[in-house]
């Protein structure tokens, strides 16, 4: 895994859950890891919700001091340049579609200094209403690239139907993800699926579900 991973995608594709899993896996292996809640759009239900989980597992969280408050402004109150320079892994979870990626554009020059050490992964979900069609999904990917002034290096298939996800749900989405990867000329880095599903898949990434509604324990 490269030092810096930027994670983007249409909201609701499951970026945050994927980013949380990646950061916890690194921490478990004793790596120093920082996860950045780079969301300047969504008011709540975001990476910063998992502060307690990160603390317990030794993951550093960088989030706007206004995250989850009523100050609904697109603020960045952390130092990306410093975090990129320092040792340890950096996972940047970029929320809010292309509008959210504008903020990342501010740091593209700084981040691109490490371009051999950076991955930018586009997370896709074939069951999200406005990205069901691969061409719409690609269109959004290019909009995010334009806004962030950065280029993706791979695709993560995170297709799911929330609680209704079955092995079949995941397997059915693979041609869609392959098509996107092919059209974009990027590798399909892997397919993420809920760890309890009975799936054996090359490039399969079993994940735990952390992003849940409040009424589920």
């Amino acid at each position: 895994m490269k030092k810096i991973t930027v994670i983007t995608g249409h909201y609701g594709c499951g970026k945050t859950n994927f980013a949380v899993n990646q950061s916890l896996a690194l921490a478990k292996n004793g790596e120093k890891v920082t996860i950045v809640d780079f969301d300047i759009v969504n008011p709540y239900f975001r990476t910063a919700d998992f502060g307690e989980l990160f603390r317990k597992n030794g993951v550093n969280l960088a989030a706007s001091i206004y995250a989850n408050t009523s100050l609904d402004i697109p603020a960045i109150s952390f130092d990306i340049e410093r975090m990129a320079y320092e040792s340890g892994y950096l996972i940047i979870d970029v929320g809010g579609d292309d509008a959210g990626a504008i903020g990342l554009g501010r740091y593209s020059d700084a981040l691109m200094q490490y371009k051999d050490n950076i991955d930018m992964l586009y997370v896709v979900n074939s069951y999200r209403y406005l990205t069901k069609d691969y061409s719409e999904t690609l269109e959004l990917m290019y909009e995010i690239e334009e806004a962030s002034k950065m280029k993706h290096t791979g695709i993560i298939n995170n297709s799911n139907l929330g609680k209704e996800t079955t092995a079949q749900t995941v397997l059915r989405s693979i041609p869609y993800a392959e098509k996107i990867a092919q059209e974009a000329g990027l590798p399909l880095v892997g397919t993420a699926y809920r760890e309890d599903l009975d799936i054996s898949l090359q490039g399969g990434i079993p994940v735990k579900i952390y992003v849940k509604p409040v009424w589920e324990d």
């Binding site: 609701g12 069951y127 999200r128 209403y129 406005l130 069901k132 139907l161 929330g162």
Partner: peptide
């Protein structure tokens, strides 16, 4: 056909 939707989007699409 099932899709994953945010509540606000679903209200609009409906």
């Amino acid at each position: 056909e099932r899709s994953l939707m945010k509540g606000n989007e679903a209200l609009a699409e409906a």
